[in-house]
Design a protein around this nucleic acid. Structure first.
Lengths: 154, 154
DNA sequence: GATATCTAGTGTATAAAATGCACCATAGTG
DNA sequence: CACTATGGTGCATTTTATACACTAGATATC
C-alpha cells in the first residue's frame, strides 16, 4: 500500500486528460439536450428532483466506495473488501452490501463449503455505473495529485 | 413540479444514449490505462484507497444533490435551494453549503442589502465535477424511466 | 402602530446512521 | 487445546441528519 502518487507516462497522462475532456463535453451535450425540453422555472424542480432521486441510491456513505472497489478490484470476498476499504466496520460493510445487492448494483455469490465463501461482484448495471463514474474519479485523482505525469529521466 | 417522465424526441434520446455509451468507453479506456501501471495485488489497495479518497468529499448525504442542483439550476439563493432540494432541512443545507464552500466546489456570493441576499454558485471545479457526473445521472434517469423516448404521434 | 413577510440562517432536542469491539458457528492446522 | 480462517451479528457509543422553533433587519399590509 504505497502512499506516493501514481506516475504515468506523458502519453498516458494526455490520454486520460483527453478522455476526461471528452466526457466533460458529453456532459455538456447531455445538459444542452435536456435543457431544450423545459420552460425554465417550471421544470427545473422536476429535473433537480429526478437527479436527487437518481443519485439517492449512491448518496450515503460507503456506497460509491464499495462500487469503486468492486469496479477496480473485480469480484472480492467479504473480508477482502474489508481490508481494501480501510476504515469501514464489518457491521457497516455487511449492511451496505445488503443494500447494494437489493438495489441491483452488486450480486452475492455463495459457494458453499465448508468453509462457506461469499463473493461479491458488480452486476452489469453496477459495472456500467462504475464506468460512468470512472472519469470523475480520475479527474479527482489528478486534482488531488494522486496521479501525476511521469517526468522523463535517463 | 410534474411527476410524469420527460419525453424526448427519438433523435435526442439516441444522442443521449450515444453520449452515455461514449462515456462508458472513456471510462473503460481510463481503467485500462491505470491497470497497466500496477502489479495486481500490490497496487489495488492503493487505487481503491485513492478512489475512496477522491470520493470522500462527495460521499455524505446531500453533497452530490447540492452539486447537481446548482449544476442544473444555475446559481441560486439559500431558500430557493431549500425549495428545490425538497426534504432537506435548513440546518443541514446550511452545514452542507458551508462544507461545499470549504472544499471549493461552491462559492458564496453576498450582495449586502438590506435584505442581504446570498447566492450560491458552482466554482469552475464544481462545474467540471457536475459535467463529469452528468452522464451517470442521465444513465440513472433513463434506467429509472424518468427520461423516455417520445413516441411519435400525428 | 401592530402584525406579517422576506431574507439567511442558528439552537437544540431527537432520530437515524456509522463505528468499535466483542462474539458466533463451522472447519482445519499445529 | 489453542489458533486461524470463513462471513457475518449484537449492542453500546459516537457521528450525522432531521424537525421545528426562533433570530434580526427591513419592507409591506391592516
Amino acid at each position: 500500500m504505497n502512499k506516493h502518487p501514481m506516475a504515468v507516462s506523458d502519453e498516458d497522462f494526455k490520454k486520460v486528460e483527453l478522455a476526461i475532456n471528452d466526457v466533460r463535453e458529453e456532459g455538456k451535450t447531455i445538459r444542452t439536450i435536456f435543457e431544450g425540453y423545459y420552460d425554465e422555472e417550471i421544470d427545473i424542480g422536476w429535473e433537480v428532483d429526478a437527479a436527487v432521486d437518481a443519485f439517492s441510491i449512491f448518496s450515503s456513505r460507503w456506497t460509491i466506495e464499495i462500487l469503486a472497489t468492486l469496479y477496480i478490484a473485480g469480484e472480492r470476498r467479504f473480508n477482502e473488501m474489508r481490508k481494501l476499504l480501510r476504515g469501514i466496520s464489518s457491521r457497516t460493510l455487511s449492511d451496505k452490501l445488503t443494500k447494494c445487492t437489493e438495489t441491483g448494483l452488486v450480486e452475492r455469490l455463495v459457494e458453499d463449503g465448508p468453509p462457506v465463501r461469499v463473493t461479491y461482484r458488480l452486476t452489469d448495471h453496477g459495472r456500467d455505473a462504475g464506468r460512468l463514474l470512472g472519469p470523475l474519479v480520475a479527474y479527482m485523482k489528478i486534482k488531488q495529485g494522486r496521479v501525476i505525469r511521469h517526468t522523463i529521466q535517463s
